[in-house]
Design a protein around this nucleic acid. Structure first.
Length: 691
DNA sequence: ATACGATTTTTTTTT
DNA sequence: AAAATCGTAT
């Protein structure tokens, strides 16, 4: 039996014991959100709720795994025979959507064994559609990526394409007719390929739940629903939760408006603000005691977020002792910044700080490049989060594409990827083959397709593909694991060797993929899991220890987005320059400044003990232009920081930018030009050595 | 018309 | 590092 009253504070206990009916928990950073959810689930199960009646929705798979682990830890008696978590319905929205959709695919007009397109695949298909529609090339037309984001935004926010285009960038409105046609073609192409993109998973689930029978089935089943990170849900996700909760109305959502950092994906804080309107008897709980950070760190966090106009009033109070003021360091250039951080980390490690308690956070994944080099030089192993993920690497996607074809012959994106590798086959040849393939359904027939439309050199390339394909067809078993191993014995391996200097590393990656695949007997399930898995990144691993769970404790490098919900004793936030953080591109979005500021707030509140803020004074994104310190640094009360800056931080015109309602038009140059530091960078070199 | 290699540009965040 | 663009070869 769990002694809830001993292990939770009164704020938390209140929620765990009285969380029946609709509940909204506004929980500040570090106030124990995860604790509430895990204890609440444990409490429900202890009180006789069947585990399969509980739906637990999280924002990442990682968070889901973590929660399942913690719940299992709280309820040792409830382990199932297989040792798996008793909570079977726990995962991301996309995950849960897939699980349900796979049962109803035909009802929605899909054939069984549909493919899931990641954003890369979506763009591939969009490019085909753009080619079909695009008009005279005199004017600059939006790229596939831009169109993808506009279509996606419209669907997730449940607004019209026109509204989305206007919101993202008004100049594209001139192409609205073309964009609309492209969007329509895209829908058709996806259907032809028997594929759903990420947005389809959500939208189709909602569509399915509009069917009374299906809705009742799941709404009756889920007697208790818990949703984490509600501030980052979008309109579709919100509607899905409302459908699921329509019978029992036991829905507990947890969120913090100050940590909403996914509006580019149509996350809408209104979902929290309006929650009460949908569920009239909503109980609202506020958690304002922070158990994570020192007072000094929280003071800075509170100071930063107070500049945002759109927010609930809330003041986090530290439960903990005091510590050192956060440090602010200006360095000569990006390399000096990297060296400084590497050096500091080293000294922490020498003082026997657990590496797992150290993290470096940054706005964009490429900001870490120089630091990675310094860490390798210093022999510090690190774990990397964010950026190009394992499942997005070219060779991993190649392998998955072969398997996707086997699973769904219509998968255009996969075909295109695989065919373009072959010599003599370019975009047009590949299109021809794909067109012919529509008429074939038997995998054996595929071998004939190329010879019908190709000749000369292209035929040679096709035969090479057929050689790979025959290997797959003749594989000893259809399990994903064996199929991947088979591909490594096929001419595909030769392709890797001729194409890449680092082919050994890439082959190792594929072997890793084969190990991951061992868990699956079902090809379709394996492919879905791979597409929906957000983190499985091998970058920065010690090469001698390929297992991702190898014993060496490692420091963490992470984008701030990926760091959400995590905490470390020592945190570095680097590249605090205008242009990098806040990012130029983000400032163009409506309310971009406030979102960037929330992102900074999230970063700061990851730190438990020591917090370092750093920025280089030169070396912007291009060339060796001067960089100005982030406007967010100017906003921090100088008495709250231990300021190691070697020149006065200048307050610039940026201070009047924090206006949430005005669309700020970033002038590219303005961040770099005309705000020179008073002294020449070179004169600081000596002082930096002393660090 | 198509494929391919060299050159140039561009680089946010993620399910 | 990867994608888009451009000129040349087939």
């Amino acid at each position: 039996m769990i002694s809830f009253s001993k292990e939770l504070n009164s704020e938390q206990l209140e929620v765990v014991l009285h969380g029946d009916g609709p509940c909204l928990v506004l929980a500040g950073a570090g106030s124990g959100k995860t604790r509430i959810i895990t204890y609440r689930v444990a409490y429900l199960i202890e009180n006789g709720v069947q585990p399969e009646h509980i739906l637990l929705v999280t924002f990442t798979n990682k968070a889901a795994d973590e929660m399942k682990k913690r719940i299992l830890h709280l309820l040792p008696g409830h382990t199932t025979a297989t040792g798996r978590s008793p909570i079977s319905w726990a995962g991301t929205f996309h995950h849960i959507a897939y699980r349900i959709l796979i049962l109803y695919a035909p009802l929605l007009g899909y054939k069984p064994r549909f493919s899931i397109l990641d954003s890369d695949d979506s763009e591939t298909i969009l490019k085909m559609c753009i080619k079909e529609v695009k008009v005279a090339a005199e004017k600059k037309f939006p790229s596939a990526g831009v169109i993808n984001s506009m279509i996606s935004y419209a669907r997730n926010a449940q607004i019209s394409l026109e509204e989305a285009v206007e919101l993202k960038n008004v100049v594209w409105l001139q192409f609205l007719p073309e964009i609309t046609t492209i969007a329509d073609r895209y829908v058709v192409r996806k259907k032809e390929a028997n594929a759903m993109d990420f947005d389809d998973l959500l939208v189709n689930l909602l569509l399915l739940l509009n069917n009374e029978q299906v809705c009742t089935k799941y709404a009756s089943q889920f007697s208790h629903i818990l949703v984490d990170e509600y501030q980052d849900t979008n309109k579709v996700q919100d509607a899905i939760i409302k459908k699921f909760a329509s019978v029992h109305k036991n829905v507990l959502v947890v969120g913090d408006d100050a940590q909403s950092i996914y509006s580019f994906r149509a996350a809408d804080i209104q979902n929290i603000l309006q929650f009460e309107k949908t569920f009239p008897q909503t109980k609202i709980f506020k958690l304002e005691t922070n158990y994570r950070s020192t007072t000094e760190i929280l003071d800075v966090a509170n100071n930063v977020i107070s500049n945002n106009r759109e927010q609930f009033k809330k003041h986090l109070i530290s439960f903990h002792k005091t510590g050192a003021k956060p440090y602010l360091h200006a360095l000569v250039d990006p390399q000096a910044e990297a060296q400084f951080i590497a050096k500091k980390i080293q000294s922490y490690l020498q003082k026997n700080t657990d590496p797992r308690e150290i993290a470096v956070l940054f706005r964009a994944s490429h900001h870490s490049q120089l630091l990675e080099m310094e860490l390798v030089k210093a022999g510090i192993v690190y774990d990397y989060r964010g950026g190009i993920r394992f499942f997005e690497r070219a060779h991993v996607k190649d392998i998955l594409s072969y398997l996707r074809i086997l699973n769904n012959v219509a998968d255009t994106a996969a075909w295109l990827r695989v065919l373009l590798h072959e010599e003599g086959i370019g975009p047009s040849g590949a299109q021809k083959i794909i067109a012919v393939l529509r008429n074939f359904t038997d995998p054996q027939d595929i071998k004939r397709a190329g010879s019908e439309v190709l000749g000369g050199k292209a035929l040679g390339g096709w035969n090479n593909f057929v050689a790979i394909w025959e290997k797959i067809l003749n594989a000893p078993k259809i399990s994903p694991h064996f199929l991947i191993q088979t591909l490594l014995e096929s001419p595909y391996k030769t392709y890797l060797e001729t194409e890449y200097v680092d082919s050994d590393d890439r082959v190792d990656d594929i072997k890793q993929l084969a190990v991951f695949a061992e868990k699956y007997t079902n090809l379709e399930e394996f492919l879905a899991e791979s597409s929906l898995q957000e983190s499985f990144n091998l970058r920065g691993q010690n090469p001698s220890k390929p297992e991702s769970l190898s014993a060496t404790p490692k420091i963490v490098l992470s984008t701030i987005h990926q760091a959400k919900g995590l905490e470390w004793s020592v945190v570095f936030i680097m590249r605090l320059n205008n242009g990098s953080f806040p990012h130029d591109r983000a400032l163009r979005e409506p309310r971009g400044v406030e979102e960037e500021r929330r992102l900074f707030y999230v970063a700061i509140t990851r730190a438990k003990q020591d917090l370092f803020l750093t920025y280089p004074m030169t070396g912007g994104n291009f060339g060796d232009m001067l960089s100005t310190p982030s406007m967010f640094l100017d906003e921090i009360d100088t008495t709250l920081l231990e300021d190691h800056t070697l020149l006065p931080r200048h307050s610039t015109s940026f201070s009047n930018l924090n206006d949430g309602d005005v669309t700020y038009e970033a002038e590219e140059e303005s961040f770099y030009v005309g705000k020179k530091p008073v002294m020449k960078p070179g004169s600081f070199l000596k002082e930096i050595e002393d660090l």
